[in-house]
Design a protein around this nucleic acid. Structure first.
Ligand SMILES: [Mn+2]
Ligand SMILES: [Mn+2]
Ligand SMILES: [Mn+2]
Ligand SMILES: [Mn+2]
Lengths: 218, 218
DNA sequence: ACATATTTTTAGATAAGACTAAAAATATAA
DNA sequence: TTATATTTTTAGTCTTATCTAAAAATATGT
């Protein structure tokens, strides 16, 4: 069994591992968790003793199979709870993360199994992120940043890169929701801003926004 | 804000306060929480500094108004989660307590408000215990132990005194559920066992059982 | 290649929440 | 009422998870 702190380290290392194929550095972890590098070294030793991390001094860490499964299960819980909050308790997608950060640590296999079933076995959370299955496997879908689409290309909005409440509320204000079709009408060379069509409305989108929206091309 | 440990102490003191009208002794708390008396003294000081307890050395503690409200809110969350687990996730009433012990510490006023609404503002948990309202007020109903009923008296089964899973499973096996009408057909002087009628079935009930079932007389 | 910068680890400190052992206060009983 | 038992508190230790400061290892640039 893992402590709350151990679980948070595991989850962070799991997320970092999905981005970079190399070992995860002490500093990368400390940046993410807002702790000091020395604290990370201490925790790495503990987690390595518990067989969830492979660690060689100064060489960074990688998750073991067991570690990967353990971490994926925490992410699974986080995302299932986010679905619950949005679908059943009428939270908006910018309000769920902090509560899910707490709920993901609840220990009860039956609870998570029943919750999954109650929610109809969802595959993605409210931000479009995939929910690992009970064995910790993720199925990733083909998706591209909106900023990489060319003029006249289109696709379905399937996720966000930035899930801060500021960005999510901004999307709400603009009427941009997951599942909607987006067409790139024009692309401005000067500042890489886009003119897009969504639900018969024309919108002007800055590059910063386009860099944080995922599209499944169609 | 209170730590997990502080919340558990508060809750324990709250429960003890409902049984005894005097101050709560260090030993009473340590027995309940399975900790040493010295640990309790330490925590009492901390909670007293935080203005949730009134404390005089060697004199035991009482909850302040603020403390009572804080504790009642934890109990509120515990019981609402128990309802959720039984009503929505198909847990049986003997499986919910341990999970609720974890869930009661989740901090999100919106979560608990929405959960309450989602559950239809329940007034009692699956064990028949009343759910404090948002202000921490409990409405207690008139109830008697089954063992105090006389021959030919009857009433509705409204609660349990012992909520161990062993006892709850025993009740399940016998078909005894909350909400059912129970009539005392006979009372055996020798061992205080009862013969009762429930759903047209005659059951023989030991004094130990009758001492752990609450009836609302009718 | 070697000096310098950066990263990582070690050493030692701190706070929370538990413990044991012993002292102090209170309760009980002859 | 005084001796004894019980309860409560104090003093000091331990573990976990954090920190700061300094040392050691690795990376970088000319
Ligand atoms: Mn999240
Ligand atoms: Mn999410
Ligand atoms: Mn309970
Ligand atoms: Mn209950």
């Amino acid at each position: 069994m893992f402590t709350l702190s151990e679980e948070n380290y595991l989850k962070t290392i799991y997320h970092l591992s999905l981005e970079t194929s190399n070992g995860i550095s002490t500093n990368a972890i400390s940046n993410q968790l807002q702790t000091k590098a020395s604290s990370v070294t201490d925790m790495i030793k503990k987690l390595s003793d518990k067989k969830v991390l492979a660690y060689k001094k100064y060489k960074g860490v990688t998750l073991t199979g067991f570690g990967k499964k353990t971490a994926a299960n925490i992410v699974r819980k986080h995302r299932l709870w986010e679905v619950f909050l949005v679908e059943k308790l009428n939270f908006s997608w910018d309000e769920v993360h902090d509560v899910a950060e707490q709920l993901e640590h609840i220990k009860s296999p039956k609870l998570i199994h029943q919750l999954d079933s109650f929610l109809g076995f969802p595959t993605h959370d409210p931000h479009g992120d995939p929910i690992p299955d009970a064995d910790g496997n993720l199925k990733t879908i083909e998706k591209s940043l909106l900023s990489t689409l060319l003029k006249n290309e289109c696709g379905i909005c399937v996720g966000v890169n930035d899930s801060s409440s500021e960005f999510l509320q901004f999307l709400d204000k603009k009427g941009i929701k997951l599942g909607k079709k987006i067409t790139v009408l024009d692309k401005e060379e000067f500042d890489n801003s886009l003119s897009i069509l969504i639900e018969n409305k024309k919108l002007s989108i800055s590059n910063k926004i386009a860099n944080n929206l995922y599209i499944q091309k169609s």
